[in-house]
Each structure stands twice: as structure tokens, then as C-alpha cells.
Amino acid sequence: MEPAGQDEGQQLVERRIAVAGAFEGSEDIAVARDLARRFLTDVQAVHGLPVSARAMSMVQLAVSELVTNARKYAPGPCLLTLEVNGGAVEVTVWDSNPTPPAVLAPDPTRIGQHGLEIVMAVGQSFAVHREPVGKRITTAIVLADDPGGDPAGRRL
């Protein structure tokens, strides 16, 4: 017997909206950004979820910065996962280096090494998790701008 309100064949678990890719060379950074753009285009076109222009740009920026850091500081491939969760897209990059990244204080005179600063500024959250091999860095970026016009993810 089916629970009340359940149509025959209706899924009890919501489908996961996610994509993943493995990247080995510096040329793959552009491929990772393209994967993020195509994923978010599908999130909107296929799944009907709103994706603001800001979210599209910020996810691609976060992907670029995180994959660049993984390629620069860790040997071997890195893995990128994008997953829609609670109105945001979680951007996760795994690499083989177990050393947590150094998050430097903002310094407008410093040349370079602003990637994590940028990721932390555009994301709603930021976390580093050690893994049995390597580490996993995750940030979440809100998909839709506030109906009042505030940019996605920005809280005053």
C-alpha cells in the first residue's frame, strides 16, 4: 500500500543535480570553467532553477581559482564536483596535497596569491576538509539574486 498522497511511480527521493570532472593540466582550468558554465546552463534550462548572471560568473570564478590552486600546489589530478543544494551550488575541489591552503590577510599591494580571498568573498561559505589522501575545499554560491535586487549571496 502506498502512503497517502503518493502517486504510483513517484520518486520518494529528489534527484541529485551534480556534475564532476577530473583535471590534470593547466590547460584544463578553462575546461573546468566551461564545465561549470554548461552545468549551470542546464540547471536553469533543464531543471528550471533560476541562475543569476552574477551566480554564473561567480561560480566560474571560484572554479577557476580553486582548480588553479590545486594544479599549482598539488601533484597529480584534481577533482571538481558541482552540486545544487538548497538554492546554492556547492563547488568542491579535491587534490592530493594534505596541507591546508594558507589564507592570507587582504593586502592590495601583494601581487598574486589572492585566489582564496576571492573565493571566500564570493561564496556564502568556505571549508577545508582533510581527506585520507589530500584535502577537499568547498564553497557555496547562491544561484539566484534576492527578489529585492540584492546580489546573490551577499548579506548585509
Score class of each variant (00 low, 15 high):
Trp94Arg: 15
Ala22Tyr: 02
Pro77Thr: 13
Asp150Gly: 08
Pro98Glu: 10
Arg71Leu: 15
Ile111Cys: 09
Arg15Ser: 13
Thr92Ser: 15
Gln10Thr: 07
Ala18Val: 08
Val67Gly: 03
Gln44Arg: 13
Arg37Pro: 00
Leu12Phe: 01
Leu156Ile: 04
Asp107Ala: 12
Asp7Lys: 15
Gln124Asp: 11
Leu79Ala: 05
Ala70Tyr: 03
Pro147Val: 03
Cys78Ser: 13
Arg38Asn: 15
Thr41Ser: 14
Asn85Ile: 08
Gly21Ala: 15
Arg33Met: 14
Leu104Tyr: 10
Val89Lys: 09
Arg54Cys: 04
Thr139Val: 14
Asp28Cys: 10
Gln11Glu: 12
Asp42Trp: 05
Gln124Cys: 03
Ala18His: 08
Ala32Leu: 01
Ala62Lys: 06
Gln11Pro: 09
Ala70Ile: 05
Ala105Phe: 03
Gln60Asp: 04
Gly87Val: 05
Asn69Pro: 00
Leu79Gly: 06
Pro77Arg: 13
Ala18Trp: 03
Leu80Phe: 03
Leu80Val: 08
Cys78Gln: 00
Ala36Phe: 02
Thr139Cys: 15
Arg136His: 06
Leu49Arg: 08
Val91Gly: 09
Pro101Ser: 01
Ala74Tyr: 08
Pro98Ala: 05
Gln60Pro: 01
Ala22Trp: 06
Glu90Asn: 04
Ala36Asp: 04
Val119Lys: 00
Gln11Thr: 11
Arg16Val: 12
Thr139Ile: 09
Ala70Ser: 11
Val133Asp: 05
Pro132Phe: 06
Val142Phe: 07
Ala140Pro: 04
Ser26Cys: 09
Asp107Lys: 02
Ala144Thr: 01
Val43Tyr: 04
Ala70Val: 05
Asp95Thr: 06
Pro151Cys: 06
Ile17Ala: 03
Ala4Phe: 15
Arg37Ile: 11
Val67Trp: 00
Ala121Pro: 02
Pro77Val: 10
Gly134Glu: 05
Leu12Met: 06
His114Tyr: 14
Val31Ile: 12
Gln10Leu: 10
Arg71Cys: 09
Gly153Thr: 03
Ala88Trp: 02
Asp7Ala: 15
Asn97Ala: 09
Val19Glu: 01
Arg54Lys: 14
Val128Thr: 03
Glu8Ser: 10
Leu156Met: 05
Arg37Ser: 09
Gly76Gln: 00
Val89Phe: 12
Ser125Leu: 01
Ser52His: 00
Leu66Thr: 13
Thr81Cys: 02
Glu90Thr: 01
